[in-house]
Design a protein around this nucleic acid. Structure first.
Lengths: 236, 236
DNA sequence: CGTGTTATTGATAGATCTCAAAGATGGTGG
DNA sequence: CCACCATCTTTGAGATCTATCAATAACACG
């Protein structure tokens, strides 16, 4: 797995796009490597923001815990995505906890190193800005959805987004290729696992999705999109 | 008003912090000026992201409109804050509409100019990254609030945030110093103006706030904070 | 086969939205 | 200076969505 970590991998990461080979080598030399087993965390909410990371392989979720212990999933991270952005953006502590959903492998750079790299190669800073900017837009989309949509629509949107990000074409449709419990979906959409369970079941009966234990396959993306967009009608 | 636009003003803006005088002059030369009258817009949702701006004076709100015509307030902008960040971050079109709440004055830089400035003065890119990063954290806070809190708590949080951002000490407490309708508060918190009206009225009876037409004064910030944080009890 | 996790399901309660109407408020123009 | 108008706000009643509470069921794993 480690052999994959070379210039070609790095060049495919948004953060390091457009760098020449010597710059990529520079970045690579400064990186430290880290393997994370399923269930382990890379950093925890409140920890000092020491480093930012790029996931090489595997899958993570970043979640915030409220004072009352409720979890909110900030984001799922897949290969070639960065996480721990705060450390790049100059934050002092991580706002969430990054946990591995599957066995994973990441490379990271300390905050100081990152600052140096960005000064040496301004393109990296511009790339980072672009990435953080698009994360900001996504976050605003979620705010909009949470503010204006009913639960069913939010679940539909969430599944479509997950399929986009981590969908694998299979015979039955598009399968989300990592273990995703009802609880997880609830934490992404701001609802309860019960409501997610009921909703998914209905959709399964309508042939829109196929669900299993920690498994969701979208059979009819168009129908799901219609549900996500639907102004105000009924179902089943 | 225009006389205020000089290096000292620019140096007080997060985006341009830490630049030397010649760099500030460089930035200043590239700026274009723009006055916006109450009710006018600087840019509209979907417009090509041509420029980013710093508000010199006045107050704006940035809002997204959904397909069904509902509005969601993304953010209120006060003096020395940047807006139209997308244009810095490399986005192609504005995700929201910026409207002046009071007569305002802004300075702006085209996307190309911004890119040039950031390459000439990497510190600007780092500053921008910091700003966008903290916006991202704020957005995640809102997602968390919308996902886990009841309406009353969200309204409390929103008012506290607004007081922080645009609060003026007055005899009666802390007044939010721009016209803020019930509808506005509803669009920030993802509820309806009716619920906001009822909630504010209750709080007024309890002496927590004083409300008027498009006017909110927080009389007892501690009580409001308690409501915002309250795990699960009743009131009135 | 236990055992712990994850998922399903039914009944009920409550928080909010919706619908509807009436009351304030402040600005404007005659 | 006053009447009028457009906005903004308040308030009530009823409808609904969704959370909560409480079990049971299905599944995976050692």
């Amino acid at each position: 797995m480690e052999s994959k970590i070379d210039r070609s991998l790095l060049g495919a990461v948004d953060m390091f796009r457009g760098l020449d080979e010597s710059a990529l080598d520079d970045v690579l030399r400064a990186a430290h490597r880290r393997r994370i087993r399923r269930g382990e965390t890379v950093f925890r909410q409140g920890d000092p923001a020491q480093a930012f990371f790029v996931l090489v392989d595997g899958r993570l979720k970043v979640a915030q815990t409220t004072a009352e212990g409720q979890q909110v999933v900030v984001r799922f991270i897949g290969p070639r995505e960065m996480f721990g952005c705060v450390a790049v953006a100059g934050g002092t502590s991580y706002p969430g906890t990054a946990t591995a959903i599957s066995d994973s492998f990441a490379i990271g750079w300390s905050q100081a190193t990152t600052q140096n790299l960005m000064r040496r190669h301004p393109q990296i800073a511009l790339n980072a800005l672009g990435t953080v900017g698009s994360r900001l837009q996504e976050a605003h989309s979620r705010v909009r959805e949470l503010s204006t949509e009913r639960v069913e629509q939010r679940i539909a949107h969430a599944l479509l987004r997950l399929a986009e990000q981590a969908g694998k074409r299979v015979a039955a449709g598009v399968e989300i290729e990592f273990p995703l419990s009802r609880q997880d979906v609830a934490e992404v959409t701001g609802t309860t696992l019960h409501t997610v369970s009921r909703t998914l079941r209905h959709w399964q009966q309508d042939g829109v999705v196929a669900v299993g234990r920690q498994r969701v396959t979208i059979r009819d993306p168009d129908a799901l999109l219609r549900i996500a967009e639907e102004p105000a009608e009924a179902a089943s």
